[in-house]
């Protein structure tokens, strides 16, 4: 089946099986391996990307469902050489260790800050509560997002 979608601003057309999961389209067909996967049951959030304007678990979306839509992945977060403040925050605050959950976490963080530029730490925790990190205990992820919020507020 033919799908055409825009990923990180670039249009791609592929012929795929209807059962192909969006995460596999991104990783295996388009070579965008920054998005990861970590479970079979939509619980871990390693696969989070944006579909149009909201983060989704791309392991739970068929590639054909993304036909005609926009997708944003970690590879599209930076603006050329300049990192998104969320990316800067993760590096600055030691918000990652193995880096496996990080792309999904950052995409959710970007969405949160777009909708709520001054979140409380509880709101950050709630926003990422569908995503598992096994390394950081979440503390520095929360700090990273709050750092980015402050940075964007010019602080």
């Amino acid at each position: 089946m033919k799908v055409t979608l825009t990923v990180n601003g670039t249009e791609y057309a592929r012929d795929v099986e209807p059962r192909l999961l969006l995460i596999h389209l991104l990783r295996d067909e388009l070579g965008l391996t920054g998005s990861h996967w970590g479970c079979d049951t939509s619980n871990c959030g390693a696969c989070v990307v944006w579909l149009d304007d909201t983060p989704v678990k791309s392991c739970t979306v068929l590639a054909v469902m993304a036909d005609g839509h926009r997708v944003l992945t970690v590879e599209g977060l930076a603006n050329g050489a300049s990192l998104d403040p969320v990316q800067q925050g993760f590096a600055h605050c030691h918000g990652l260790q193995c880096g496996f959950c990080t792309p999904g976490m950052m995409l959710t963080a970007r969405w949160l800050l777009n909708n709520n530029p001054h979140p409380s730490s509880y709101q950050v925790r709630e926003a990422i509560s569908g995503q598992v990190c096994r390394c950081t205990g979440y503390e520095n992820i929360v700090k990273a997002v709050l750092w980015a919020a402050e940075y964007e507020a010019g602080g």
């Binding site: 579909l51 989704v56 509560s129 569908g130």
Partner: peptide, 9 residues
């Protein structure tokens, strides 16, 4: 219900 990302879709 579930989590914020699942609730989005």
């Amino acid at each position: 219900i579930a989590d914020p990302i699942v609730r989005n879709w």
